[in-house]
Design a binder for these strands. Structure first.
Length: 230
DNA sequence: AAGTTCTTCAACCGCACCCTT
DNA sequence: TAAGGGTGCGGTTGAAGAACT
């Protein structure tokens, strides 16, 4: 997967580096350092331009450069840093010891970009579905018997609305902290239902609607499964 | 088995910034 | 202060290998 070597009109070699060239460059830099990239190729006996030598050294020959085999932890860090910094690959690289900007950039474009896109898309779908649930609930909300909870701005909140909102919160939290998503299995514990709805609901005589609640959870679970399968 | 399409990644290119004169 | 050279950064490309038809 490398460019076929060739010589340009100035007699400079381009394309893939040979082992012999690597050895020459490595030996020269280890002995004399790289104070001037422009002059280095001639001194090292290489028919390359300074830029090409610099790139080769920085990305592959430099000591402590890690190649390939990204860990989940590194993936998470890259995703998070990209979220914070954007395409500032050099900045991101400084936070990942042994990784180079070029390699991180490639890894992002080939592996992480699509994965992140999927998360965002699924989140959007869920939001839309959740909005649908709320709309459907409007009829139920108009029934005073269903107005069981007062929100902070005194608007009535139905049980289903709370469930939908909670599901959304769950996925948004998930989006924000990729750590949990990529590193930990998604557990569907019964205790979740018991422990995560506000105590005020129980105090107010609220009884959860298992089917509706589970619909929301099932939806998230479905998203998780699809993403993990992909 | 052969042809085609897709994926991956090393390397190139152009531009912007910094430093020196 | 402007000009010129060197360096670094980010986007893009080219080609090998993998996957698919």
């Amino acid at each position: 997967m490398v460019r076929t070597p060739f010589y340009d009109k100035n007699g400079l070699k381009k394309g893939a580096w040979s082992t012999e060239e690597d050895n020459k460059l490595r030996a020269y830099i280890q002995k004399f350092g790289h104070s001037n990239w422009r002059k280095l190729p001639r001194s090292a006996g290489l028919s390359r331009c300074g830029k090409s030598c610099r790139l080769r050294w920085m990305n592959y020959l430099r000591p402590n450069v890690k190649l390939g085999n990204y860990t989940e932890e590194e993936d998470l860090k890259i995703t998070k840093l990209h979220d914070e910094l954007g395409n500032k690959w050099s900045m991101i690289a400084t936070r990942l010891p042994g990784r180079t900007d070029n390699e991180i950039k490639n890894h992002w474009h080939t592996h992480l970009k699509n994965r992140t896109k999927k998360i965002s898309r699924k989140s959007k779908e869920l939001k839309e579905q959740s909005a649908g649930i709320r709309e459907a609930e409007n009829g139920i909300c108009s029934d005073p018997s269903n107005q069981i909870l007062e929100s902070s701005d005194n608007k009535p909140v139905s049980g289903a609305e709370w469930v939908a909102g909670d599901c959304l919160l769950t996925l948004e939290t998930l989006e924000q902290s990729f750590e949990n998503f990529w590193t930990e299995p998604f557990f569907m514990e019964d205790t979740y239902i018991q422990t995560t709805y506000p105590a005020s609901l129980a105090e107010g005589g609220f009884s959860t609607s298992p089917s509706r609640f589970n619909d929301g959870i099932d939806l998230i679970h479905q998203v998780m499964q699809e993403l993990q399968e992909n």
